[in-house]
Design a protein around this nucleic acid. Structure first.
Lengths: 232, 232
DNA sequence: GGTGAGCTGTCGGCTTGCTGTCGACAGGGA
DNA sequence: TCCCTGTCGACAGCAAGCCGACAGCTCACC
């Protein structure tokens, strides 16, 4: 009965906003995502849903995330887990969480960052041979493991923000993305400044990647940006 | 039906965390790993799984590790075993047991250390002719058997931590690794300190290996470190 | 056992360079 | 043409990373 091949994701967070945010983005990627707001609910949903991967907030109203993890593991499942934790959380308790296939992220995070980690963990946990994941648009390539970005074979050095923004644009290429979408995915979800940061970073990317070549980063006036070949 | 060429690993430990930790890291390496929490379970799983190598905790709820080992041997299997033992355990009893390809490790261990031993044991036990395993990145080489590290032919003297950290970076080269990943693989799994140890050791490695040469150890600001050639 | 050497981890000051704001200017569209 | 949107240089604040100094610990050697 489980012929559905979509990735099954369970998001456990007591803040419905956050849980739904993550679930929505995952569904947009074609995943099958459900949410739970408490540890108890999480365990019962996990039991029948059999997720491929779990996003787990460490702060839950009933019992803490580690307990949930223990119970998940006790139930015999080896499902990989990506933890969410508050900024000031006792960092030492997190020690050791990235070991194995698991990973963690500090709130507030950027959704694209979370999705990237989920994909990475999944890639590791499913199957032995894992191939490097490389995004390509014409002669522009981005390797998600080595973070290497090349234009026509020439390596480019990008800052973290530039890298994230480019990855998001390439991943969604050839779709046009609004500045709001970009802001919401690449910046932390509580980022306040509604300035021209996006434009600024795009201009840096252009200088580093498009100058001297056929432009691949295009402005769609009044709408947003897109990475693709030709078209005007 | 056993056309799968992956290494088959059986991890026997009553602490699910530890067993899963080891299994997950092994799977990440492309191995086929299963776990068992008791001696009885271990024997039945071994009987049908036919592991190539076994990780065995000496402290089990039903009977002790030595008994498990005896029964494994009685069953006619010569499978190599790597023991796990608590800090204060009688190391000498183990010493006598590590005949043939066997080995042991004291808890808490660093995962990379365990993986290195498993690989070494495997290499020894499979066939007589075993070639030394040497990691190379440009003119930097690391011999996992002799622990010899050379830069441009010149031998370098590394401390144990420096060696482990370098090996992990080289093994995963050219991927970029976060400080958290490095900490979780190279340090013991219960290491609490979230300090700047990684940066410190990297700075030592740089002084010993990169000074006066084309740098191979690179900082990826906001992300982590990587060992590879060129790029900036 | 006692002693010393070397390794490991902490602290803190300094440096580097990334990020976001501002503002002047350019260019497209009606 | 004129306005509005987008471009991009300059700059300041600040976080990340680097590394010297030191202290505790382990372990080898006597």
């Amino acid at each position: 009965m489980n012929s559905d091949t979509r990735v099954r994701l369970l998001v456990i967070d007591d803040e419905p906003h956050i849980a739904e945010l993550v679930a929505t983005v995952a569904r947009y990627e074609g995943w099958n995502a459900i949410t739970a707001g408490t540890g108890t609910e999480a365990l019962s949903r996990a039991a029948e849903f059999h997720p491929d991967i779990v996003v787990l907030d460490l702060m839950l109203p009933d019992f803490d995330g580690f307990t949930v993890l223990d119970k998940l593991r006790d139930a015999g499942t080896a499902v990989p887990v990506v933890f969410l934790t508050a900024k000031d959380a006792t960092a030492d308790r997190i020690a050791g969480l990235t070991r194995g296939g698991d990973d963690y992220l500090v709130k507030p995070f950027a959704v694209e960052e979370l999705m990237a980690r989920l994909r990475a963990v999944l890639r590791r946990s499913t199957g032995p041979a894992w191939k490097p994941s490389v995004l390509e648009v014409f002669d522009l390539s981005l390797n998600e493991d080595t973070r290497e970005v090349r234009r026509a074979g020439q390596p480019a050095t990008l800052t973290p923000t530039e890298y994230e923004l480019l990855r998001y644009l390439m991943r969604r290429s050839p779709s046009v993305l609004t500045k709001a979408q970009i802001l919401d995915h690449v910046w932390e979800y509580d980022f306040g400044g509604r300035s021209n940061v996006v434009e600024l970073v795009v201009s840096h990317l252009r200088r580093k990647l498009d100058s001297g070549h056929e432009p691949l980063i295009h402005t769609v006036r009044g709408v947003g940006y897109v990475v693709r070949r030709v078209h005007r």
